[in-house]
Computed example of a mutant assay.
Amino acid sequence: MAFTAFCVLYRQRYLEYAHNRLADAQQADAVVRLAFAELADQWDQALRSPHTNAYAWRLLSRRIRDHAHETADEQGERPGGDSSAGHGDHAFLPDHTDDTRVLLQDLGMPLLEATEMMGHTAPRPR
């Protein structure tokens, strides 16, 4: 039941993020499905991890990255170049920084929601 609740809570945001990265709604849907299938297989391990959201986010990010590289290889593009994978001029950013940029700037997600979804500790107001 907890896994189902997790999927219901994050599926739409994962789809938005994947679509931004891959620039194709069908590919985004396929990648999110694969990430959730992998998470389902590893759910007990994800729950035992320090932060379930971070565990799930790593699976999603890896799936997106792998798919983008496979697509680039098929099209004869160089990984890290300006491609439909959404990286463009931001390819030099560390993954977590670029993820944050996409969530906050491109998708307009509030900071606390983005950090919670990625499994990062949000800064506390002083």
Rank of each mutant, 00 (worst) to 15 (best):
A91Y: 10
F6D: 00
Y10R: 15
R33P: 00
Q12S: 14
A56T: 04
I64Y: 03
D73C: 01
A56E: 04
E38T: 15
H19W: 11
A18M: 08
A5Q: 14
D44G: 04
G80E: 07
L60I: 05
T71F: 09
T4C: 02
Q75G: 02
A25P: 01
R21W: 02
S84F: 04
F6Y: 15
G86K: 12
A18G: 05
V31Y: 08
N53G: 03
E77N: 06
V31Q: 08
Q27F: 07
G88H: 14
L34P: 00
A23V: 05
F6A: 01
G81Y: 12
Y17W: 13
T52F: 06
D24G: 06
E77V: 04
D24H: 14
Q12T: 15
Q12N: 15
R48Y: 03
S83Q: 12
F36M: 15
A25Q: 13
W57D: 10
L47H: 06
Y14R: 10
R78K: 14
G86S: 08
A91V: 10
S49G: 00
F3S: 10
H69S: 02
P79S: 05
E38L: 08
F36L: 15
V8K: 15
Q12L: 10
R62E: 10
S61Q: 09
Q42T: 04
D89A: 12
A40H: 14
T71C: 05
D89Q: 12
P50G: 00
H51K: 11
L22N: 09
R13T: 15
A28K: 13
G76K: 01
R33E: 12
R78N: 03
V31N: 04
H90Y: 15
D73F: 14
E70S: 08
A46V: 03
P79F: 13
L60T: 07
R11T: 07
A23I: 05
D29K: 15
L34C: 13
E16S: 05
L39I: 05
L9Y: 11
Q42W: 00
Q26V: 06
A54N: 01
W43L: 03
S84K: 11
R63W: 00
F3T: 06
A23G: 12
H87A: 09
R48G: 12
L22G: 06
G81V: 07
V8H: 14
T4L: 07
R13Y: 03
P79R: 11
R78H: 08
A46Y: 06
A18Q: 07
S83Y: 07
R13M: 13
R65T: 11
A30K: 14
R58F: 00
R78E: 09
V31L: 06
F92R: 09
F6E: 00
L39S: 05
G88F: 12
F3Q: 09
E38C: 09
Q45D: 08
A46H: 05
A37Y: 02
A91L: 03
A46R: 04
V8C: 08
H51V: 06
A85K: 01
H19A: 10
S61T: 11
A2Q: 14
F6S: 01
E74W: 04
D66C: 02
I64C: 04
H51C: 07
A2W: 06
N20W: 15
D89L: 11
A35L: 07
A85C: 13
N20D: 13
L59D: 02
A68I: 01
A85P: 00
H67F: 09
D44N: 06
A30P: 02
A2N: 14
Y10A: 03
D29M: 08
I64M: 09
Q26F: 12
R48P: 00
A2L: 13
